[in-house]
C-alpha cells in the first residue's frame, strides 16, 4: 500500500517526529511504499543539518536523512513554513540574499501543493503532530 506522512512538529520538543520516524521504518519493513513525507508547521525544523544534539541522544534530522537516502524517500519541506522559520536550501538562500543555508541532505523544499498531491496519490495519509 502507498502511504504518505505529514509531520507538524519539530524535533525534540514533541514526540511527533520520533513517532513518524518509527512508523515510516515499520511501514517500509512491512513492504509498503512511502510516497512522500511532508514537513509542515514547525515540522520544517526537522530538516536542519545544523542541529548538534548530545552524543547520547538521537539525531532526528540525521535519522530522517539516512532513512530517505537508504530508501529513496521523497521528503518535502513546505517552502512557506520553511521561509518563516529560516530553513533554506542553497538556491533559496542565494535567491533571498542570505549568507547561509541549512537544509539536510535527503530533504527538498517545495510548495504546499506537494501535500495535496500526496493525499491524492497515496492510499493513506497520516498526520503526526502536537
Amino acid at each position: 500500500m502507498k502511504f504518505s506522512i505529514q509531520i507538524n512538529e519539530g524535533p525534540y520538543q514533541h514526540q511527533a517526529s520520533d513517532t513518524a520516524y518509527q512508523f515510516a521504518k515499520a511501514a517500509l519493513a512491512a513492504g509498503h511504499e512511502i510516497f512522500r513525507v511532508f514537513f509542515y508547521h514547525d515540522g520544517v525544523n526537522n530538516a536542519t543539518r545544523l542541529a548538534v544534539p548530545p552524543q547520547d541522544d538521537r539525531n532526528v534530522a540525521k535519522q530522517w536523512s539516512e532513512l530517505a537516502l537508504e530508501n529513496d524517500l521523497d521528503m518535502v519541506v513546505c517552502i512557506a513554513a520553511a521561509q518563516r522559520r529560516g530553513i533554506m536550501d542553497a538556491a533559496e538562500a542565494k535567491r533571498q540574499g542570505l549568507d547561509a543555508d541549512n537544509l539536510m541532505a535527503g530533504f527538498r523544499i517545495s510548495g504546499l501543493g506537494q501535500l495535496i498531491e500526496a493525499g491524492i496519490e497515496s492510499d493513506r495519509l497520516i498526520v503526526f503532530g502536537a
Partner: peptide
Amino acid sequence: EVVLIGAAFDQ
C-alpha cells in the same frame, strides 16, 4: 494556507 493551495486541485 493549505486549504487555499489545495483548492487549485479541484478535490
